[in-house]
Amino acid sequence: MVPAEFGYVAPRTITEALALLERYGDSARLLAGGHSLIPLMKLRLAMPSMLIDLGEITELRGIRDDSGTLVIGATTTHATVAANELVRARYPVLAEAAGQIGDVQVRNRGTIGGSLAHADPAADLPAVMLALDAQLNICSPAGARLVAARSFFEGMFTTQLAATEMLTEIRLPPLPARTGTAYQKAANLASGYAIVGVAVVVTLDSDGAVAAARIGVTGAGAQPVRATTAEAALAGRVPGEANLSMAASAAGHDIEDPLDDMHASADYRRHLVAVHTRRALERAIAAAG
């Protein structure tokens, strides 16, 4: 449980961090909260030769409003996100999910950007980012680009981030009126990881029919996905027993290739996705009022 030898640098600005990343390339890892990376290093499953600690970069932290878009700095901790008034008022699904990650220690150190960039298939936040249609701001020495959460995740622990790029901000677009949200998960009792996690954002129109629904699912497959067949089953309809149960069952089948391991079989994961989609939809619709 002792990591292999590594170098350590703690830049104070994003520009400095990017220059270091360019210099050390693939042999370096960015350190945010460290609650995924450090255990892997102690087990020597990860052996970066250089750690670039982002903890001293104040411009990477904090939550601010940018004319209706909420901007969350990448190294903002889960605890801060869960307690933030703007997040709780505008995106309750994010506060709810962030408040359920791991345990208190993990939430006090772990960061939103760290979790997304690490892309653990059982992490909670990727599902929420898909449901909220978040935009991720990615910086490199060449400049910045915005990537939709939906195209950010490419596989297990694999994202669009290139070796010289860094995730700096999460940008959440405003939600329309009459929108309700909810996050539901089947948590692993020991680790808190999502065996299956479902984030739902539902907007109702003036007749009470579903104007838009976005369902993000994590934990079920190698990467988070939108349950698009389930979303389509709800669109334009007034939610009722028939279409809710159709949507829930469709969500289970939206997982193309479910994980199959000691925690849950592929079939059971599909079942959990259906059950938690149903519960999340009911809560989100009630909240949309």
Partner: peptide, 17 residues
């Protein structure tokens, strides 16, 4: 070995990938 001791959660998914 090490990967079996600590990596079960991801072993079959990695193999599949």
């Amino acid at each position: 070995g090490k990967v079996a001791a600590v990596g079960q959660r991801l072993l079959s998914a990695s193999a599949k990938m």
